[in-house]
Design a protein around this nucleic acid. Structure first.
Lengths: 345, 345
DNA sequence: GGTTGCAATGAAACCGGTTACAAATTCGTC
DNA sequence: GACGAATTTGTAACCGGTTTCATTGCAACC
């Protein structure tokens, strides 16, 4: 046994030398191969512990041809809803050997760069795309990517071949409108995002679709005065709401396509001194954390569960790429709090 | 020139073969070495592009002995304040060749595992520890770690050897109290976290210290009735506030050690029908996103800047480990909104 | 024309694991 | 005690880059 002269970290060959075996045997011990005699296994473990040896993951990756890493591509990851999804991802991944690399996307250019580079075996073993519809031109490349890709919260007709985790925005919008209709409202406003977001988000549009379905079902005609859209944000929603609420015949209820926008509507009502919910009912979407504090009636998406489900699908597909394609639906839920009430007739 | 028979990704040797040069030369071209003739460089680039070659980062890491990766260790990364810091980190890192791996910590055990394993050269090239004081027993190990470590928002006397990025919680607490005192308040309550948090957070304690300093400076005696602490959370803060506000001589103003807790105080006031700010002033800390919506007076920490500064320090130290140790202070700022007002005497 | 010197390139070792294959050891049986 | 089979171990190639060192090619100079 030579003394340890190496000041840096010991390698598998150091361990082998000290234990009087070959590097291959040490590798087998580390990987719990059954092909090692019990006494040898113990001797090797003793040396490993006495040397404080830890395997070099990078070498391991190279030799295995795997990166042991998963990328998640997510827009505006500081938004409350995305954070909650990410929490599901991170916590589930903590129990595995995989690392998580987060790619934050805020512009279409960033998305193009990342979607183009990521799906190569050398970089990551799997990709989770959250809330980010791919551009048409990238679809062929994604379909032939060498690593599995799972989409979470992405509604796009061309994703028929991928594993998906989705909430049903159309149904969520339906639930919201239905709730207002059931309370007796007939003049119901909608405030959402612009339908042509540069990153192609569809949730607002889909929620509106469900909203319209519910209205149609109840024979309430569509009134374009009660329909307003703008770039996502609380303040702009407030502006739209103030305009809508000062119409000659204002709505008695407003469905906002997100809780953030619902907060804008709440502010507008406060400004105009319209009592909520007595004279104006407001319902949001997402159930972000502050919604409970505000007593905001909303549609809850189980965001944590959607992140977790996404990782699970991805890990399973990484193990066996041939399993049948699956679609997980995360149900929406109506959370009734104190901003909705029957109209005062 | 042989045809491309290899279905998988081309390697540096494929490029070399097609360009009629050696792998070493291709590597030099890729790394912009000046030791390559211009004509050769062009020929190699042409082949690289025609083959759609991209270097295998893992092999590169192994060969360079670097992981090209940075770890950030952060507790409860879904909390609004941490998210905002992370945004500073992620966005700044996007321009570099480094990847980010996030380790979410929610228990002391997790912290122990991660702090013990991470600082080895094989795993990461640098570590950013956010809001997480190390346990005493780990300090020696951190001091002899092989990779640079930068602490952000960690106040601990034993970190004299590390680069630090900190807000001044004591001063922030002072600013908050000072504001209330300047408005004329004399009966001022404090609601914060328990001083002995399992993860050792110190911010609430420090903010209280600044608070007491301001009181002492104004000759306001300390009254333990006006001092309450509990586990972090909105609801528990509400309970404490309700108790404090039903004292025979309740405070006219309350400083909450976080905006989350300030929201609990707001709820308490609403329950007890105490008008804010006319009969009760409330000031928080952090300036989380919803604070603006609520009109909450608070102390703003520039969280984005602190995350960004942390990465900058880390990257600089990774380039040159011998540079002088630095401490960056992120100033706090009093944001006056509509929950503070002179007491009605 | 023969050196000298420098720029450009190639060959091969190396990073630290994994693994196919060959070799050695152990075991059971006759 | 010898034999074959089963078990265990060693050897060496390999993953795909980087880099040291040796070598080549070419121009400049005497």
């Amino acid at each position: 046994m030579k003394p340890v002269t190496n000041s840096s970290h010991p390698t598998i060959r150091d361990v082998a030398r000290h234990a009087g075996v070959s590097p291959g045997t040490v590798s087998r011990v580390l990987n719990n191969s059954p092909l090692v005699k019990e006494t040898t296994r113990q001797r090797v473990w003793e040396v490993i512990e006495s040397l404080n040896y830890t395997p070099n993951l990078i070498a391991r990756r190279l030799s295995l041809g795997k990166s042991l890493r998963i990328a998640v591509i997510v827009p505006f990851f500081t938004r409350p809803a995305e954070v909650e999804r990410l929490r599901g991802v991170v916590n589930h991944l903590a129990h595995t050997q995989y690392d998580l690399v987060i790619h934050n996307i805020e512009t279409p250019e960033q998305r193009a760069t990342d979607l183009a580079q990521i799906p190569y075996r050398e970089w990551v073993d799997g990709v989770l795309v959250i809330s980010l519809p791919p551009e048409e031109e990238f679809l062929p490349r994604l379909k032939t990517a060498e690593v599995p890709i799972v989409f979470v919260d992405v509604h796009h007709p061309e994703l028929r071949d991928f594993d998906l985790v989705n909430g049903d925005d159309v149904r969520g919008g339906y639930l919201a409108a239905r709730h207002l209709i059931d309370l007796g409202h007939r003049r119901i406003g909608f405030i959402g995002d612009l339908p042509d977001h540069p990153l192609g988000f569809t949730s607002s549009r889909d929620r509106f679709e469900g909203f319209r379905n519910a209205l149609a079902e109840a024979n309430i005609p569509y009134d374009s005065n009660y329909h307003a859209e703008s770039v996502h944000g609380q303040y702009l929603a407030q502006m739209l709401a103030e305009k809508m609420l000062t119409l000659p015949s204002p709505p008695t209820a407003i469905f906002a396509a997100s809780d953030t926008q619902a907060m804008g509507v709440l502010t507008a009502a406060r400004h105009l001194r319209i009592p909520v919910p007595e004279h104006l009912s407001i319902i949001g979407f997402d159930d972000i954390q502050v919604a409970e504090y505000l007593g905001l009636t909303t549609i809850r998406q189980n965001l944590y569960a959607s992140g977790k489900a996404g990782v699970e699908l991805l890990l399973e597909r990484m193990i066996d790429p041939k399993i049948e394609r699956r679609v997980v639906e995360i149900p929406n839920e109506l959370i009734i709090r104190s901003t909705t009430f029957p109209p005062n007739s």
